[in-house]
Design a protein around this nucleic acid. Sequence first.
DNA 1: AATGTAATTGCATTCGAAGTCAATTTCGCC
DNA 2: GGCGAAATTGACTTCGAATGCAATTACATT
Lengths: 354, 354
Amino acid sequence: MASRKRPRIQEKPQPEIPFANNGGRATSYDVALRAGVSQSAVSRCFKPGASASSKMRDRVMRAARELGYTPNAIARSLITRRSNLVAVIITNLTNLYYPEVLAELSSQASARGIRVLLFTLPTESEIDKVLEQVWQYRVDGVISAARLSAEQVGLFQKHGVPLVFYNRFLRDTPVCAVFCDQSDGARMLVQRLVKAEHRKFGIIAGPPDSVVGQERVKASVDRLTELGITDVTVVPGAYDYESGVNGLHELTRRLHRPPQAVICANDAMAIGCMDAARYDLGLEVPKKISIVGFDGAGPSSWASYRLTTLRQPVQRMAEAALTMLLARVEEPSLPPERRVLSGALVEGTSARLG
Amino acid sequence: MASRKRPRIQEKPQPEIPFANNGGRATSYDVALRAGVSQSAVSRCFKPGASASSKMRDRVMRAARELGYTPNAIARSLITRRSNLVAVIITNLTNLYYPEVLAELSSQASARGIRVLLFTLPTESEIDKVLEQVWQYRVDGVISAARLSAEQVGLFQKHGVPLVFYNRFLRDTPVCAVFCDQSDGARMLVQRLVKAEHRKFGIIAGPPDSVVGQERVKASVDRLTELGITDVTVVPGAYDYESGVNGLHELTRRLHRPPQAVICANDAMAIGCMDAARYDLGLEVPKKISIVGFDGAGPSSWASYRLTTLRQPVQRMAEAALTMLLARVEEPSLPPERRVLSGALVEGTSARLG
DNA sequence: AATGTAATTGCATTCGAAGTCAATTTCGCC
DNA sequence: GGCGAAATTGACTTCGAATGCAATTACATT
């Protein structure tokens, strides 16, 4: 064998090895060995912009294919300090509206090369446990559609994890948030209901911890007051179908008869409210009672409901949330920011509008 | 200074350091340094069963608290070869039934210390890209509610990643699967519809790639045939609301008048079908037409529908899927297995039953 | 052919925690 | 006080890929 100055690793035409080497998966080192190059070279061949000759690329890629090599994202994350993981925290997926949001976030994240690590909360009290897990997984950022206290938000800063609220925000605490300001729409809606001679209003509110729900109710009440309507009764709700049913019953009990119009803080309750009106109270909708909601969730457009509602621009909101989040992943020092998008009025047939 | 045989690292009362050390997060080594112990000791203190004196535990835990230390799950995964991540692949979250499944899987996984990495498929053709990502993240296992070809299933074996199908299975290919056999229920349902004098049947099928949908249709058709009913028309559907609406129209066109009973391969279509019957064709349900579905999804119990349907035991199915999957994570050599649970008949008011 | 420059490539180190093994300490007990 | 067994502890290596830096090669120019 002729002695060479710098003996280079020879490409070893390993006989068979149909796949994986040692019980597990092939590593970049295995590929390097087979291709007769260094591990660094393999790494570079799998990194888009990196420097590598086309001959090298071919050799490495062939070896990789032969061994069934797939880069290990875990090992990569360890050294690059980027997991390409975003945690999405959601309270109850059984809500009508959240699945749509999640689907949108997931597919848009995927398009940007980001994976979604899902955290669902059975109860609000689980949040601390969930956050513990979030820190452990070194996610690049978090999108939360669940309530977080100011202290909890503080933890994000301490751990250096960017956070964006989805359809929520904290008063008096600067945090990134994307939400839908529907007060304009709500005001317009109220105005038209009043113009159509509705005078006796019921409102079914959202749960107390939903700032967006509060805003919806407040905007409605304010506009009603401005227009001189004082016969307004507000009952609490929890964003679910039953709350809508019970809400209408409660309103009817308190007023001794049904209100002329009911504003529900979301679609699920509006749907429950419509069903209660029709099937429990025997009221024709919208002839005897007008009902409106918020969100524009899927079922709101079903023929049985055709809800008049304010649709949230889910796609644009998801996009805004991700963009805002990823910007802060790149540049953590960016200041908190709120993106407020506006909802669109959907004129259904659940309300008699003037 | 008295010389000691084996000088041990002294606990250094570092002055301030409110949190994190070097721009980032504290590591087990930082904690070790501060507590005056070895890194191994820190690791052990965070592992439940490990050997460590209570004095050590206290010291380490205090140092950890002071530094705001959180174990790095990424680094841990690298060495333990366990990510505690399970990928869940889902086609369209906008389907009524899947969000419930996802929520259930997520919360049950969470209870077992497992995190869900979500993969949603905008289109079926994205599957290969998604699988590529699945391999990269070294998930411990995969639960798929999306269709996979036999070759794709083969990749799981090659990569050594356990797979469990949810509400799906492959004929002629042994794979783990959990699904709901509703043929018993379907047969019973059909029988009662026939007993109640229904003679002219329409069936709105699911998409061709849904094996479960096929079974539902087949069981129904078979039983109808057994009972001597031959006036059965099957039209295709895609599991969504619109398919239900269009399906009924199509059936009506083909039969020149509406069928007496319609069996829909899922609830979303049954709901669309009911709406079409009532609002497009002016048929009272169930007086003029009986409609039944499958799944027992949330809206199926709303007052507007009160669907007669076969409810899937989502909780038990999720539990079975996870149990089956995790068993194979522990012991990869376990053979494929199918768990078939049975659905429960929910008697609503959408069908006139005998 | 010699030289200079740009493009490749490999070595060695790094990320953070877990586990092996051997050294040491603790403790019970005579 | 001394012995042996059991518990505790630390040094060192490992997981798999990325990257700074230095060494080398390729290529253009005179």
